[in-house]
Design a protein around this nucleic acid. Structure first.
Lengths: 229, 229
DNA sequence: TAATCCATCGGTGTATACAATCCTGCGTCC
DNA sequence: GGACGCAGGATTGTATACACCGATGGATTA
């Protein structure tokens, strides 16, 4: 919680987590260069641990490593965006169904707290935090289903989705998806697995259709993005 | 192919690939310690790149990193084994269906060559190589479906499956699954997506049921567990 | 004037040195 | 004789030094 770089664990996992947080908050925007020395100075560690953190983030497709060029915040392509949501569509609905059969009262309370925090963040204008909480909700469902392996995969896909949303979000209405989470929670509380599965499926489809994924040559960001805005 | 450590690319990815190969071939068995210096000497690289390779393998759950203790070949638990195949059951059947609609003649030829190589490896008694080819077959299907993200996830799950099979294989009959791959190939060639989906589903179920996953850890994680009861 | 070449420099890739931690074996004490 | 404790060795964690690559900018030449 402290922002004092000297007072905390300086492991590579910590650095990776803080960088990921910054990416999710859009303080680091896609395409931005991550200089190893700078990051090291900021977090009070050497390049050795910075490199380990960057490698971990590269595994999760949050940064792209170009040999002899350095690390850059990832810029998922339109195709990649579709693929990520395709994978989520295969994993999450059935997992939500499984979760419904195993949801405990404690789980429901935790999810409800999650939604409350999400609303609060939205009201406070902290869209980055809201997005992160929204993603956590999905991961939590996989954990309730007691599928830790799937939860881990979903966690990675959710993280990538955050980047995708940062790049391709178009819907002017606020993140209304919180309503979908409310519905999901009710389905889980009612142990209605079929409903939970359907809700999750349409929820993911809803997010996907809220993106602007026209075939725009979103790849040549190297030059276009530099000159356009 | 060369085993001369000086004649080839000494990047961490290469070291990771060769270690993974050794794990799949069961030359490195679950639980084995991977000393950083030894690995470095063997491949002619410094500990820096060995550590990067080990971190990559840890990310794929092929090795387990214990802080201040070192790296060990992973020993997936029974629960983890079930979870891996649960994830595969969600991803692969539907992906096989998609692949059926996109399979080209070149794809069919490549898959057929794959199966031939698999049979040859089996006949030659190279079960490790056969297992690896068998896994590649599954990954190839995801690539035919043009789902690179799913292909990557499946690749990781397949790698873990190889470890799981090494630990929990019980069926005395030879790896008869090659027949399942034959059937799958025919379904793809016939562009029968529904059949491909069904075949993949039952194929995965068949592998899972061929494992000995009785609830108590048949492979004790520690000596204590082995000697206590 | 414009294009090409080369030198310099910032930054990454790798190796090595140092620090911290854990395991092991021996000695001592009860 | 056994158990506890301490010290030595070995191995991992981290920092730093050096090597190599690529980018940038100026100078030279057509």
């Amino acid at each position: 919680m402290s922002s004092d770089p000297d007072s905390q664990d300086r492991s590579s996992a910590t650095v990776a987590a803080r960088l990921a947080e910054a990416i999710h908050d859009h303080r680091l925007i896609p395409g931005m260069k991550l200089n190893e020395d700078e990051v090291g100075v900021i977090y009070g560690v050497s390049r050795t641990v910075v490199r380990a953190a960057l490698q971990e983030l590269a595994h999760n497709h949050l940064v792209e490593l170009r040999r002899n060029r350095g690390a850059f915040v990832a810029q998922p392509s339109v195709k990649e965006a579709r693929e990520v949501f395709e994978a989520r569509a295969l994993l999450e609905p059935r997992t939500a169904r499984s979760a419904a059969a195993r949801t405990t009262e404690a789980d429901i309370a935790a999810l409800r707290a999650h939604i409350v925090a999400e609303h609060a963040a939205l009201d406070a204008g902290a869209t980055g935090r809201a997005l992160q909480l929204s993603g956590q909700f999905h991961i939590e469902i996989a954990r309730i289903a007691d599928q830790l392996t799937i939860a881990e995969i979903v966690a990675q896909l959710v993280a990538r989705s955050s980047l995708i949303i940062a790049l391709y979000w178009q819907r002017r209405t606020a993140l209304c998806e919180s309503h979908a989470h409310d519905q999901l929670l009710r389905a889980l509380a009612a142990r209605d697995g079929a409903l939970a599965e359907d809700l999750m499926k349409s929820h993911l489809l809803d997010i996907l259709t809220s993106l602007d994924l026209r075939d725009q040559s979103s790849q040549p960001r190297s030059l276009e993005e530099a000159l356009r805005p």
